[in-house]
Design a protein around this nucleic acid. Structure first.
Lengths: 145, 145
DNA sequence: ATGGTCCTTCCAATCATGGGAAGGTCAAGG
DNA sequence: CCTTGACCTTCCCATGATTGGAAGGACCAT
């Protein structure tokens, strides 16, 4: 009745076989049942679990949080507030990283904008990395000793 | 003449002592000079190198790219086009990740928006993780076996 | 029975960083 | 002179998620 080995479960869930074993090893998943030949076997329920993990990962949740989400998922006494809190904390973490990277990209684009990008060695990008407060007095050598 | 030990160089450059040793170990930096007591000692030039690395890291450049940037920095035959290419490739990488994370955040916010976040177990966030195509027919149990 | 494809376990690498142990060095002050 | 405390040295290990590979067993079809 719908018993899949690890490769089939991987295809069905989107989680690689390597990762399925890993999740089991770190206790994110219960130990899978085994066949006579010691193959892991998965039923629809386990595949459903795997898909849940796959989607949570695709939303960027770290495994520790996924562990909590799985526990809440299984717990009918949960409150939706608990789930929402985890989700919004993750949104905040994402947005913090996004902001950080946007600042990096903006700073770099600013440096690149002033770089002619031709055959000459003169380069405001290197100058900016070497000394971010130069900026104006552009006649800095751009090479260390 | 301005000789600093690793802790002082760390403070002066913003790169931790741990990381300075690490960068030396992986060949990103040349082997530092040593004092009689086998302490690493750094002059202004080395500190300048460290600051360069620190700033490049703060712009998100991976160490492999920083290795290339350092080589270009030292090479007076470089063309600014080479530098600009590395910088813009990194900008593109940043923007790709930003986009990815924005999509994650948007998807999660969409799920969270429909979650009342109270004491009841009903939770569209968990439902969305369990089955992203449910969405409308909200009466799905939200718990595995 | 033989090959090919799957599975098993274990070990290691990635990327950047940090923690900590065990021991050597240095400067200050009793 | 000797101790104390703050620094340094090397070495190993951990993080987080994932992937790679080796060595060997299992399964299935021909």
């Amino acid at each position: 009745m719908d018993m899949l080995n690890i490769g089939e479960a991987a295809k069905a869930s989107g989680v690689s076989a390597k990762m399925i074993r890993h999740y089991e090893a770190i206790g994110l998943l219960p130990h899978a049942q085994r066949s006579n030949g010691n193959y892991r076997i998965y039923g629809p329920q386990e595949v459903h679990n795997l898909r849940f993990i796959h989607r949570a990962r695709s939303l960027g949740f770290p495994l520790g949080t996924i562990r909590e989400l799985l526990a809440l998922w299984r717990n009918r006494q949960r409150s939706s507030a608990q789930v929402k809190k985890l989700a919004l904390a993750h949104v905040a973490a994402l947005e913090a990283k996004i902001l950080e990277m946007q600042e990096m990209a903006a700073a770099l684009k600013h440096l690149a904008r002033n770089c002619h990008g031709d055959g000459r060695p003169d380069c405001p990008i290197l100058d900016g990395l070497a000394d971010p407060f130069a900026e104006k007095g552009k006649a800095r050598n751009g090479s260390p000793a």
